[in-house]
């Protein structure tokens, strides 16, 4: 049963100050569960836009995007209900403590065991003693680990990560990277990462390089 995202001959552009700026043209790509994909490239190449299109957050200006869940074609809204996100700026809820942030996706899905499951995840990540700490009391690395766990806790089919280590030092990045890829392997989801970091990209099963509107397989 196919669970995949198919981008076919897509192109994208945006208007700024009355001028049209083309990001890429005629790109085709298939993203499947059980695999990880890293998209690298210079700033302004359109990596984040490509991620947004793949995640069904925006539509390309040309070409088509199709989403499949267990062999059934679905719309972008349904795909999003089966996806998780990891951001460069962590985006934890400031009014919730660590365990509250982690339990949030399960609570939104109506899971009564949300806090028990969240406690297990915290223990697994070595952050058990930080459960009642607020986001501003946690380090950047700790915040991002909570954010990673939050994305995986509800077992989504796809995880989209936008520069997940962009705000972290090299050592912390490594820890977060391992956590992310380990979780992806464990849950069998498809992981799509947009990054500048070649070290991070090296962990992915597949690497693509986006520059000047062209998408090529990276070394």
């Amino acid at each position: 049963m196919k669970t995949a995202i198919e981008l076919e001959s897509i192109s994208h552009e945006f208007a700024a100050h009355g001028e049209s700026i083309r990001l890429f043209d005629n790109l085709s790509l298939t993203i499947r569960t059980g695999h990880s994909l890293a998209i690298v490239g210079p700033s302004g190449a359109g990596k984040s836009s490509l991620l947004s299109i793949a995640a069904g957050l925006e539509a390309p200006t040309g070409g088509s995007v199709r989403f499949f869940l267990k062999g059934t074609a679905v719309d972008a809204r349904t795909l999003r209900a089966h996806s998780g996100f990891i951001f460069q700026h962590f985006h934890l809820m400031p009014e919730l403590d660590a365990i509250g942030n982690l339990a949030l996706p399960l609570r939104l899905k109506g899971d009564r065991r949300a806090f028990d499951v969240a406690a297990d995840w915290l223990e697994k990540m070595g952050l058990k003693d930080r459960a009642r700490h607020w986001p501003h009391q946690l380090s950047g690395g700790e915040q991002q680990r909570i954010a990673v766990a939050r994305a995986f806790i509800s077992s989504p089919d796809f995880i989209f990560a936008d520069e997940p280590t962009g705000n972290l030092d090299a050592r912390t990045s490594e820890g977060v990277t391992s956590l992310m890829f380990d979780c992806a392997k464990e849950t069998g989801c498809g992981l799509v990462i947009v990054t500048h970091s070649r070290r991070l990209a090296a962990f992915a099963d597949n690497r693509l390089h986006l520059e000047a509107g062209r998408l090529e397989v990276a070394a």
Binding site: R77, R80, A81, H82, S83, G84, F85, F87, H91, M93, L104, P105, L108, K109, R150, A151, S154, P156
Partner: peptide
């Protein structure tokens, strides 16, 4: 807006 965007990133529909 921030809360809803995060909820959205966790798979919650906007209308919810």
């Amino acid at each position: 807006r921030y809360r809803l965007a995060i909820y959205s990133s966790l798979g919650t529909p906007l209308c919810t």
